[in-house]
Amino acid sequence: MSTGRRGGQSGELPRVVVIGGGTGLSVLLRGLKQHPVHITAIVTVADDGGSSGRLRMEMDMLPPGDIRNVLTALADTEPLMEKVMQYRFSNGTGLVGHNLGNLLIAALNEITGDFVTAVKGLSRVLAVRGEVLPASNQSILLKAEMADGAIVLGESQIPLYGKPIKRVFLDPPDAVPLAEAARAIAEADAVLLGPGSLYTSIIPNLLVRGLFDEIIASTAPKIYICNVMTQPGETDHFTASDHVQAMYDHVDRPFLDTIIVNTTDVPDAVREKYAEKGAAPVVCDHDKLTALGLHVMSGQLIAYEDGLLRHDADAVSRQVVELMKQKMG
């Protein structure tokens, strides 16, 4: 158990660790990097779909997709470089479907012989504000036991099965955390989880035992940023407390202090658009959240981007920073 750095040295920026993966995490980081905090993003490495899955299989490397999204979100570069990092080939033998940023990470992985070194190298090129670390340097396969008893293999396949998820688990079950990631949690002034896919982006990080040990040992505020909408195939009909309870069930204990959850009504037109895909607004069941011992921070936390509903990164980041200030005195 680590004693941590809590409080920091005079003049040091408060240290925020953000744990997760996927688009939601990237949206949050774009807001958080505008504040005077040091950010470490710890990213899940269970992705096995699309370009990431192909590179993982063909080049025996960790999946780069979520890492790429986070690097791009934290980068301090020209807009053209962001377009380069996110560019996806639409034709070309062997290139169709691949993302250029993924290929850059794959190339650096081959050049350096180490995935973490590759990510650090690209971080310097992109002038990334903070650190980006995989949860583990091991190849991890995510599996799920469904409500009907079936076992589904692979992060990309789990939401497609169409039945409720009973639990997810890692193969290997004793995955070793990246030492730098564990140390970042131990030294954090705040630990954030989410937003992102509950079962395939957030919980897998908690199942890396050494990482969760550091989360439990930390005296920093532990904050969950709840998704705005349910996710078809993962969190159908889930309320905010259902999200929290699913995490607690996987680690056999409560560990969060605070939940940040949107309470603004989603406009009917947007609600109907999402309903076509089987998604609905996540209800903030305040009484159940407080019964779980959580401090509930709520409000107008949504924004619209390219026709999609997202967290308002600025609003959420302000709440996080304000909470840190209160805790640090």
Rank of each mutant, 00 (worst) to 15 (best):
G4L: 14
R6M: 14
V16Y: 06
I19S: 06
T23R: 12
L28Y: 01
L28T: 05
G31I: 05
K33R: 14
V37C: 11
I42C: 01
V43Y: 02
S51I: 11
M57R: 15
M61S: 04
R68K: 07
V70C: 13
A73M: 04
L74E: 02
D76V: 13
P79K: 03
Y87R: 06
S90F: 06
T93V: 14
V96I: 13
L100F: 15
G101H: 06
G101Y: 08
A106L: 01
L108K: 08
N109C: 13
T112E: 14
D114S: 11
K120R: 15
G121R: 15
R124P: 00
V125F: 12
A127Y: 10
A127P: 01
G130F: 00
L141N: 10
L142D: 00
A144V: 02
M146R: 10
G149N: 02
I151H: 05
L153I: 10
E155M: 03
Y161H: 12
G162S: 02
F169T: 02
F169K: 12
A175I: 03
V176N: 04
P177Y: 03
P177A: 09
L178S: 01
A179M: 13
R183F: 05
A184R: 13
D189N: 06
L193A: 10
P195T: 12
L198W: 09
S201R: 11
P204C: 13
L211F: 00
I216H: 05
K222Y: 00
I223F: 03
Y224F: 15
N227S: 13
T230V: 07
G233D: 13
F238Y: 15
T239G: 07
M247K: 10
H250V: 01
F255G: 09
D257R: 11
I259Q: 09
I260P: 00
N262S: 13
N262P: 12
V282I: 14
D287K: 06
K288F: 02
L289T: 06
H295Y: 11
H295P: 00
G299F: 09
G299P: 12
G299Q: 13
Y304E: 15
D306C: 08
D306P: 07
L308S: 10
L309P: 02
A315G: 02
V316E: 07
R318F: 02
R318T: 12
Q326W: 03
G329N: 12
